[in-house]
Design a protein around this nucleic acid. Structure first.
Lengths: 277, 277
DNA sequence: CGTAGGGTTGACAGCTTTCAAGAAGTGTGG
DNA sequence: CCACACTTCTTGAAAGCTGTCAACCCTACG
């Protein structure tokens, strides 16, 4: 169930070359399209769930921009442990870490069916010098990426596991909002183990923290479907550097009965939140 | 004891404008100097220990390149907790995270008397387009920075505190080696609290881990003077994702008596390592 | 229908944090 | 030069949280 793209032939699944792709690339990078597309258009490439788009350690020959979908960036240690560095959405660059050493420093794996623009490095350089708009968009994307790296470093810093998870969810929520989606209803593309690896905790702990945040009344949890019902509460919980968020009054708020036990019964009430008892 | 540079007048301490500074900048960025310096030279600026070179949240008007010395990048939370994001040495860029949002995402503070090149953003853009060598050097530095960010994210990931410290020391060692300095004798420019913040642990834990690594015979520790005496052992200790490095035989190796108790007696034997008892 | 993978929860050992105190280093002023 | 204050570093003890091991439920899939 895990496809891989050969390094020699990175366009394996469904290469679709379209006119005006460059404008779309610029759009994906967050800039208004530029009419001066006199370059050969970049390749638009579909990537199926589970596909390894970039292999860690492989010679870096391409730079990719996520146009749709979700990727995880991961690095596998000598002991086989996979460390998830981050998740990439529309507009994010993949493979840029390969410029320095000529080889990708991390792998990129599609977590859902996705679409990327693929630029050979040579074309990448050419584009940068020929198209000012592209260069600016790139520059901005890079800087953004850098701030995001900082933000994510903060996420993993000296806090309790539940606060980390809260920050992670707020981060995801913010990115959803950036793309015009609902910041409250999240559909996580990654499993618990990947979240755990990203946050630097055990996957069981992630599970427990989801339960805790649900108990507190901040979330409704149904597997990967998350609904944030108390954004401020979640934010408060995320802010506490240490300790359980300065005495949350009582364990569970009686005024907010909230549902419990995932998938107890049918249709819509599969949410997990707090035990009424 | 904490100087700050005004945002309006960033050249406060000892502005020294020299000819051919651009070549030196390129050199600092890791590239061979280019003879075609027809630009106004960037400003070379001395920064005293403790000076805040870039203020978090301040409008981003400059990009700096570290020419000599050490800086810490830090972000202060709403609760006043300072999170140390990383340490910057010669060739590293400071302030690049400000390009995206127009304001610096993190502060940069000198940990020792240092020297930086300061480029106004406008000049920065001009330089990039006019000087291909500069642009390439910048690109490489950015990519390097990105890989470094990944590396550091790895450092903080799901491992025990002692392994984190081991990784951190190996990281510092490698950077020292990059600059032609000894990879074994390290002179840390940051205090325990800053290391702790960077690693995401309590500063007491850092202290204890130093003691542990010294006990194991990997290090000699005298405050901020560190000597790595068993690089392979340290590396092995850093590699273990979890657990105390698969049974280190016994607590202390009798064949390596090693010194103990810092500053017990005079001259050179102030190293701390293992209790002989 | 059986298997495999994902998610949740419990129990316990272990590590880390926190609180507290002491030792050592640094800088200032008398 | 010494005393003093302040910061940094180290160490101890107790409490808390997290990791590990294990079991269970559910869904997807062959």
């Amino acid at each position: 169930m895990l496809h891989t793209l050969s390094d020699r032939d990175p366009i394996t699944l469904a290469p679709v070359v379209r006119p005006h792709c460059e404008s779309r690339l610029l759009h994906a990078l967050g800039k208004a399209p530029d009419a001066s597309s006199n370059m050969t258009p970049p390749l638009r490439q579909r990537v199926a769930t589970g596909t390894v788009l970039l292999h860690e350690g492989a010679p870096a020959r391409h730079i990719c921009v996520v146009q749709a979908g979700t990727f995880k960036s991961a690095k596998t240690g000598d002991d086989g442990y996979e460390h998830v560095l981050g998740f990439s959405l529309r507009g994010d660059l993949l493979g840029y870490d390969g410029l320095a050493n000529g080889a990708y420093a991390s792998a990129a794996v599609a977590l859902e069916d996705s679409v990327v623009f693929t630029l050979p490095l040579r074309q990448f350089e050419t584009l940068r010098h020929a198209d000012a708009a592209f260069d600016l968009a790139l520059q901005a994307a890079l800087s953004q990426q850098m701030s995001r790296a900082i933000e994510l470093a903060e996420l993993m810093s000296a806090v309790a596991a539940d606060a980390r998870l809260a920050r992670f969810l707020l981060h995801v929520s913010a990115r959803m909002a950036e793309q015009g989606l609902s910041p409250r209803r999240l559909r996580l593309r990654m499993n618990r183990r990947e979240i755990a690896s990203h946050l630097g905790v055990a996957h069981e702990t992630v599970s427990r923290c989801f339960s805790l945040l649900a108990e507190r009344g901040y979330l409704l949890v149904d597997n990967r479907e998350i609904e944030i019902v108390d954004m401020d509460g979640l934010r408060a919980h995320a802010h506490c550097t240490r300790g359980p968020a300065e005495e949350p009054q009582q364990g569970a708020d009686p005024s907010r009965p909230a549902l419990t036990r995932s998938s107890a019964n049918g249709s819509r009430s599969r949410w997990r939140a707090a035990a009424a008892a």
